[in-house]
Design a binder for these strands. Structure first.
Lengths: 190, 190
DNA sequence: GTCTATAATCGGATAGAC
DNA sequence: GTCTATCCGATTATAGAC
C-alpha cells in the first residue's frame, strides 16, 4: 500500500473513531507512518483528505448493502439478511457517525456522500418492500417508503443505544423488534 | 440567571451543537459572558462543567418523555403522542448526540447519564407496551422489550437520517413507518 | 515525493491581582 | 467571585531543503 493509500485508510479509521473535529492531521500522519510534507503533497489539507476517506466509506457501505439486498429470497428474508449481518456495533456506523459532526454537515461537499448513501439505502429498501408487496409476500397496507426509513433508522439508532449502554444488547433488541413487527406483515401463504 | 447557571446553559447548547470534543472552555465562557476565572471558580474544568450540563439535559429529556408516556389513552395513543411531539429535528437529540463522542463514552462519569436515560426510556416504553398487551389493546405476540428498543432507535436513527439529508423528511417517514407497524399490532376491538 | 523547520492560532488550565 | 496575565502543548498549516 503506497503512502497516499495509507493516508486515506488512516483517515477512515480516525473519522470512525473520533469524528472529523476530533481527528488532527498529525494523528493521521502518525497512523499512516507519513510525514507532514507527504500528506500535504497528496492532499490539499484536512477537508480534502477527509472527503476522499468519506467517499470510500460511503461506497463500501453501499456495496455491502447492495450485495445483501439483491440476493435471493423473499423481501423479508433479504431484509433479515441485511439486518443480521455481522457488525462492529460498539464502534458505530462509519458513515452515520459523521452526521453528528457539525463541520461535516456544514460543508456541502463532505455532507453529500452521507446524503447519497442514506438516500440510496432508503430507496433500495423501499424497492425490496414494494416488490414483496406486489408478490403478495407482504401485507398490502404496508408503506414501503416509510417502512424503509424505519428500518434504516432502527439500525442507526441501535448504534446510539449500544454506545450509550456500552453493550450490544439494546442494538440486538432493536433489530429483533423491527424484524418482529415486519414478520407480522408477511402473509401466511407466501 | 447567575453566572454559574449561564455557564451550564451555554455548555448545554454547545454540547448539543458541537459535541464535547468540539466545545472549548473559551467558547463556553464567551457564550455565557463570563471570564476564565469565573468558570474555573465554579467548576473544576471542562469535564466537570460538561457533567453538570449532561445531567441536566438527560433529566429534561426524561421528564418530557415521562409526561407523555404516563398520560391518558391506550398504549398506542401514548406512544403516538410521544413520537409525534414537536422536536428540533435537524439539531438532533441533545443526549443521543453525545454517544458519538469518544471522550464522553470513554469517561464512565460522563457516559452514565446517557446509559441511565436510554435505559429508563426503553424500560418505560416496554412497560407501556406490556400494559397494552395485558389489556388486550395489542397483539399477544408483540415483544415489549424488543419493540421498545426499536421505538427509541427509530427516533435516534431518524435524527441521523434527517441530518444526512439536511431535511426533516426522512425523520418523519421513519416515525410514520414505525407507527404503521405498531398500529398493525393493535386489536380491532380495543 | 518526502523530510524538517517554522509559525500563527487555539485548547485547557494555573496564578495571582482586585 | 471575577478579572487579566501567563503557560505549555496541540492544531493546521507553509517554506524550503533533500
Amino acid at each position: 500500500m503506497d503512502t497516499r493509500e495509507r493516508l486515506i485508510e488512516s483517515t477512515r479509521e480516525l473519522l470512525w473513531e473520533r469524528g472529523y473535529v476530533g481527528t488532527s492531521p498529525k494523528a493521521i500522519q502518525q497512523r499512516a507512518g507519513a510525514g507532514q510534507g507527504s500528506m500535504y503533497h497528496h492532499f490539499a489539507g484536512k477537508p480534502d483528505l477527509a472527503l476522499a476517506a468519506v467517499r470510500r466509506s460511503a461506497e463500501e457501505m453501499r456495496a455491502k448493502a447492495e450485495g445483501e439486498l439483491s440476493g435471493p429470497g423473499t423481501a423479508y428474508e433479504r431484509i433479515e439478511t441485511y439486518l443480521l449481518r455481522e457488525r462492529e456495533i460498539l464502534r458505530g456506523c462509519p458513515v452515520g457517525r459523521l452526521t453528528q459532526d457539525p463541520d461535516v454537515i456544514a460543508d456541502p461537499l463532505l455532507r453529500r456522500p452521507l446524503e447519497e448513501t442514506f438516500g440510496w439505502l432508503r430507496e433500495r429498501l423501499a424497492r425490496v418492500l414494494a416488490e414483496g408487496r406486489e408478490r403478495g409476500e407482504l401485507a398490502s397496507g404496508l408503506d414501503p417508503v416509510a417502512t424503509a426509513a424505519t428500518i434504516v433508522a432502527t439500525l442507526q439508532g441501535g448504534y446510539v443505544l449500544a454506545r450509550a449502554a456500552a453493550s450490544v444488547e439494546p442494538f440486538e433488541f432493536a433489530i429483533k423488534g423491527v424484524l418482529g413487527l415486519l414478520a407480522a406483515q408477511t402473509t401466511p401463504s407466501a
